[in-house]
Computed example of a mutant assay.
Amino acid sequence: MKIILTGLTLLLALSGIGACVHSAVYTSNVEDKYPPKGTLVEANGAKVHVIEAGRDGPPVLMIHGASANAREFTFTLAPRLQEDFRVLMADRPGHGYSGRPEAAETLEVQAAQMAAVLRQLAPDQKAVIVGHSYGGAVALRLALDHPDLVDGVVLLAPVTHDWGGGGETWYNKVAGPPVIGPIFSQLVPLVAPAMVKGGIDGVFNPKDAPDDYYADAAIGLLFRPPSFRANADDMNVLQDELAAQQHRYPELSMPVVLFSGARDTVIDPSLHAGKIKHQVTGFELVKLPQTGHMPHHHHGDEVADVIRRLAADAMDQSS
């Protein structure tokens, strides 16, 4: 029996070492394939990686959702705006190439990192803030905590309210705890990339995913163990964070426009869009009957037009 237990222990140890080696190789390869494309901004003891498009015009800050990074916007919205705006696309804490400061799983700290980007890269200017999915919650917190930086908010299939429990994915629950989480995250690069490539269409349903979306959005960066755990930590506390934030939405004084796909299967539009529309005075809801969770990919022109309108209205009011 002792020999058997010793053998099993050795086998597990070797398997763990093998997983660590594989994840290290995976990380090196995926970072070679998708290197950082932007500048690094120091904020609260951590770096924020910001991809820029356009050099002149009012600033527009874009905040990506869960399981993503700033490249989400580089081939969708940015090309539509870069001739007239300075587009800033930031990796959220722990995602892409941004560092992760203490308490980065909170919306307060996530918004503070985004505020630091604006104060350093677009000083003395207000911006239109664009947030997709989880990034919508961060965009709202940025507008709540730092209204001096915000001219308007554009929300793309956002999560805005506590949804009453349940719905958390099993892999985020496993990846979060301090002991099992790091071990589990080392295994993620072994299986997750292939699984996600096959499931991307579900996020875009009922539309088709853009060709080469996995590569263009550099989704593979998610499966580096630290990034995967950062994403899990964000998601595991999101309901509590929203429960604490959602009562503050009546404080928003700037215009808020929300694009909602009626066939979104990732979030419940009737819950999030349905609640916030009653809380914000300057609120506008854009309903998209045949669209799911990625409206900026299939309605990019409409989203860009709204951004232009909010920026123009803000300039008219300030002149």
Score class of each variant (00 low, 15 high):
Met1Arg: 11
Lys2Ala: 12
Leu5Cys: 11
Leu5Trp: 13
Leu12Thr: 05
Leu14Asn: 01
Val21Gly: 08
His22Asn: 14
Ser23Gln: 03
Tyr26Ser: 03
Tyr34Val: 05
Gly38Met: 07
Gly38Asp: 04
Ala43Ser: 11
Asn44Glu: 14
Gly45Gln: 09
Lys47Tyr: 10
Val48Lys: 01
His49Asn: 11
Asp56Arg: 14
Pro59Tyr: 10
Ala68Asp: 10
Glu72Tyr: 15
Glu72Thr: 15
Phe73Leu: 06
Thr76Val: 12
Pro79Lys: 00
Arg80Trp: 10
Gln82Ser: 13
Ala90Asn: 00
Asp91Glu: 05
Asp91Met: 04
Arg92Glu: 09
Gly94Lys: 03
Tyr97Met: 02
Pro101Trp: 07
Glu102Cys: 03
Gln110Pro: 02
Ala111Gly: 00
Ala111Leu: 03
Ala115Gly: 09
Leu121Gln: 11
Ala122Lys: 04
Pro123Thr: 06
Gln125Glu: 15
Val128Gly: 02
Gly131Ser: 06
His132Thr: 03
Gly135Cys: 01
Leu142Ser: 02
Asp148Ser: 09
Val153Tyr: 04
Leu155Asn: 04
Leu155Lys: 02
Pro158Asp: 02
His161Arg: 06
Trp163His: 14
Gly165Ile: 08
Glu168Pro: 08
Asn172Asp: 12
Val174His: 02
Gly176Asn: 15
Pro182Gly: 00
Phe184Arg: 07
Ser185Phe: 08
Val188Phe: 12
Val188Ile: 15
Pro193Trp: 09
Lys197Leu: 07
Gly198Glu: 15
Gly198Gln: 12
Asp201Ala: 15
Gly202Cys: 07
Asp208Gln: 13
Tyr213Ala: 08
Tyr213Arg: 05
Asp216Thr: 12
Ala217Glu: 06
Leu221Met: 04
Leu221His: 07
Leu221Glu: 09
Arg224Asp: 11
Arg224Tyr: 09
Pro225Gly: 00
Arg229Trp: 10
Asn236Gln: 13
Val237Ile: 10
Leu238Pro: 00
Gln239Ala: 14
Asp240Glu: 15
Asp240Ser: 12
Gln246Met: 15
Tyr249Leu: 10
Val256His: 04
Phe259Glu: 08
Phe259Asp: 01
Ser260Ile: 05
Ala262Pro: 00
Val266Gly: 02
Ser270Leu: 13
Val280Gly: 03
Gly282Lys: 11
Glu284Cys: 02
Leu288Phe: 07
Gly292Ser: 07
Ala304His: 06
Asp305Tyr: 06
Arg309Val: 10
Leu310Gln: 12
Asp313Gly: 08
Ala314Val: 05
Ser318Trp: 09
Ser319Asp: 15
